[in-house]
Design a protein around this nucleic acid. Structure first.
Length: 263
DNA sequence: ATGGTCGGTCCCCGA
């Protein structure tokens, strides 16, 4: 039995609802981790998504951020609605759940990692602190020896090969060595970047800015990632980036990335 | 081409 798991920063679920519904109906992912829903839980369009057969769990916030997990399979338990380690952090950027698949339980997190710009500065400090907390949680999850999929917008461009013009992004919070090192450190724990494991091609992007004709010029970056534990990585079959979604009317600036697992 | 575009709102901020 296969399990497909998607990550997609929708940049407002309300502005994107027709596109999101169309894509879910066409791609039919078993699990979809959404970021930047930009709404409180009460205003999330629950019915429309339930009508497509999805169970829905959200961690929302007014105006900014907000994450969701949609699943065609039962969501057994929401294990976390925030990253541990900072009680004062009230930004809605993390939700983690246990999902029942054909072969047992799979743990999935929907992650919206802070952008961190302008860097350096307090926002960049917050990004790095958040990444440390994610590192700690990722280590705890590895110890469970379960299939774990950490899916979302990491706001990190891992390699120069993941950006159209590395020079143009020099010094940006998405490419700074501190950001790349923190991302690599999570992988060093024992996670794999699903895209790099099965594909690894250069210049495959998940985000194109709205400005300056970035989409038409293919000036993109790869910042949406699926990090997978060994128990998930061993069963990873394919990864796809649904690039065409970016060319639609009223598109998000991000497109979905989908991993298919034998789970 | 040293700019530009979205989405959310307290009329500017975040990306």
């Amino acid at each position: 039995m296969t399990l497909s798991v998607a990550a997609w920063n929708v940049n407002s679920i309300k502005a994107r609802l027709p596109n999101v519904l169309d894509w879910l109906q066409a791609a039919r992912p078993d699990v979809a981790c959404l970021q930047e829903i930009k709404t409180v839980d009460e205003a999330f369009p629950l019915m429309e998504l339930q009508d497509l057969g999805y169970n829905v769990k959200t961690v929302g916030q007014k105006s900014y951020n907000g994450v969701a997990i949609l699943s065609r399979l039962p969501i057994d338990e929401v294990t976390l609605t925030a990253l541990p380690g900072d009680e004062s952090d009230d930004q809605a950027r993390y939700i983690e759940a246990v999902i029942s698949s054909g072969s047992g339980a799979v743990r999935v997190a929907s992650i919206y990692l802070p952008n961190g710009n302008p860097a350096p500065g307090p926002k960049f400090d917050y990004k790095l602190a958040w990444m440390k907390r994610l590192h700690a949680r990722a280590a705890e999850l590895l110890a469970l020896e379960e299939p774990v999929i950490l899916a979302g917008d990491y706001n990190v461009i891992p390699r120069d090969a993941d950006v159209h013009d590395p020079a143009a992004w020099e010094g940006d919070g998405l490419t700074r060595p501190e950001s790349r090192d923190a991302f690599a450190a999570i992988k060093w724990l024992g996670y794999a970047d699903a895209f790099e494991q099965v594909d690894g091609r250069s210049h495959q992007y998940t985000f194109w800015d709205y400005q300056a004709g970035a989409w038409n010029r293919n000036n993109g970056i790869r910042i949406d990632h699926l990090l997978v534990s060994p128990q998930a990585g061993d069963r990873l079959k394919s990864v796809g980036i649904d690039k065409d979604v970016r060319g639609r009317e009223k598109a998000s600036d991000h497109v979905p990335i989908v991993g298919v697992f034998d789970l």
